[in-house]
Amino acid sequence: MKTCAQTVSDYAFRAIGYGERLLPRSDFTICEQFTLIGSGMIWNIYFGVIALCTGFFFAVALAVGKSSERWIYRRPSELFIFLFRGSPLFIQFFFAYFFFLSLKKNYAFFDPLTAAWLGAVIVLFLNTAAYSAEIFYGALRSIPKGDTEAADAYGLTGWSRFRRIIFPTMMRLAWPAYTNEAIFLFHATALVFFSAFPARGQKGDALYYASYFADKTFNPFVPYPILAFYFILLTLVVIGIFGVVNRQLNRHLPQAAVPKLRVRPNLIR
């Protein structure tokens, strides 16, 4: 019987391929389940953070494109947002995986795309960009008229008008909804290994290990609550970090007027 510390050192980084190679096969302890599911969270955090950080910039570009008066910018942005918001993420994963697979067959150069660490990140990046773009677009349309008129009065145009006036206000207005989007992006990362992307060498995310334990023990009442615990923790951390940014964005306003971050659960993909 191994001690818990031993288990932790064996399996803490199992999800990314360090430590003990074989997964436990019988007599699962609570400690093993906690450690492995926690180890899987590394993937969820990785997918979420990369997709958020890259998707943010694309989303801003898309939002500006969608509100442009020139159809050559507007149409493609609208189409892109519709494509990714109108179809299930689950199907997007499947389609992307098989698309990458056929690319790889023709050009070996595309090999990494069929692995989750790159392929799934690309899908999540495009997906979150579309959802966030819709949020930013909504914010862009509700920027107070006075702000833009003041910018015009100061003679600000083009890039400096966008950077100094439009962008900060847009962020401020969009931030509560964007926090929500971030939370649900992290939830969406649980789909990766349940769609087409294979978990090579049993290196999977938290849900992958949770369902591994549930299948082996035929007892869903232990691994899934552990998974829920980790995700609630992650959600709280995301709310905390986004709350700090929210305060930073609104630091010049009277504090009573700062909008509170509210988490609304009506967003699955």
């Binding site: 939830h187 789909l191 709280l236």
Partner: peptide, 22 residues
């Protein structure tokens, strides 16, 4: 209402199928 917050829906799907059956 609150319990569905914070946890991915897909985890609920996997959980309830076995839990309900049992």
């Amino acid at each position: 209402i609150a319990i569905v917050r914070g946890v991915p829906d897909i985890a609920f799907f996997l959980f309830f199928v076995i839990a309900l059956d049992q």
